[in-house]
Write a protein that binds this DNA or RNA. Sequence first.
RNA 1: GCCCAGGUAGUGUAGUGGCCUAUCAUGAUUGCCUGUCACGCAAUCGACUCGGAUUCGAAUUCCGACCUGGGCGCCA
Length: 430
Amino acid sequence: MRRPIQSVTPTTGTAEVIGWVHEVRDLGGLAFFLLRDRTGIIQVTIVKKKASEAVLAAAKAVSRESVVRVTGTVKAIDKAPGGRELVPETFEILSMSESPMPLDVVEKVPADLDTRLDSRFLDARRPRVTAVFQVRSAAMHAINNYFENNGFINITTPKIVAAATEGGTELFPIAYFDREAFLNQSPQLYKQMMMAAGFEKVFEIGPIFRAEEHNTTKHLNEATSIDIEVSFADHHEVMRILEDLIVHTYRHVKDSCTDQLANLEIADFEVPRAPFPRLPYAEAIAIAQKKIEDPIKYGDDISSAAERAIGADMGGHYFIVDWPTEIRPYYAMPYENDPSICKAFDLMHPRMELSSGAARVHQHDLLVQQIKKKGLNPGSFEFYLRPFRYGMPPHAGWGLGAERLVMTMLNLSNVREAVLFPRDMHRLVP
RNA sequence: GCCCAGGUAGUGUAGUGGCCUAUCAUGAUUGCCUGUCACGCAAUCGACUCGGAUUCGAAUUCCGACCUGGGCGCCA
């Protein structure tokens, strides 16, 4: 029976392990092989005078990063990593690795991100890369659990659509039989339609596609969006859900990923404390005006430089609330007493935006009016507008970028580090 | 899309007109080595993105293409 390497202790007795040959140190009469699986590393020690012919032959033939099965007795020994080593009775090569390798798994020599992504399967053998995706997995698990435990219905909506969700962003056109279709930029319209269906609380975690030619460390052309929509809720309520979810997710990662965080050399993993400050847009602009060179004024989008300046001031997660209606999508609900601002918000990490959401317009006529104001044609949104004529409840929701959440949580320098196979302007393979 | 910086062995780098038969590390191959843990020692192998131009001479200068990184813009 194969054992995970981590489970082999000084008192294990005999063990079978299967893993990749991480390093080889041949001292002459004595040779050390480090074997790695996703749980850890164990030293296999061969005393050449005592080992069988078959073990010696396999050990001589094997190359680094080959897959081998080793059975033998476990010896407690202080000098070995983990306080134990395996003395092989059998040493079998299951799959030889070619050499040279496209990159150095052991990380004696660094590799550029581009080189790493070209050989992502090898890159991901590195413990610190594995750790990122184990943390991502744990975070997504926590998020799914949170929704399931709080009465949300998990929905799946189409990624092939006929028209843009919001205007503005560029879409990827695709051939749909004899028609043109697009990859969806957001589940926004569909999750809103499920409010009219009476689902009350829905969530969807799925891919979104944007054909923007952006070339930055925080944008992807294919990303994972965590979306919710809640009936009879306003923006305050969904902000509370969002901050609660963030705290819950951080706490789960902190509790369940101690080894991974150690691998990533994150010693001071802090769970943020809710409630997060609510910073009105107007005040955010005022902070930015004081701190950055570039002119920024009320009514502008918040630039990256402004984001960072305000983030430095706030020091942790925070919301920017009460945005000018003009710079938010048509479905954001304007305040009744001052329609020039709306019930929209962004959740910010000091480094960047993580999420945006709003209380939505649920009145058909107001929605049509707002669509027109944005210079869009209500005719192309007919499928979306119809539900608003037959009893659409008031509702609110948000979308949260999964990759940015992982990126900021682990302080990764590039969002591509949080995606196995990133899609950007230059990368379509692998 | 714009601006800046780059493209040299499998990987990461040094080299800004001749001293380059191109540096260093890692790697691979071979040999030696019984406690390594970035093992050590010795030998060997392996590279100037492509096309054009300038020049007696180009990895190095110029032009073009392609590719990469960072910043901005666009975008949530």
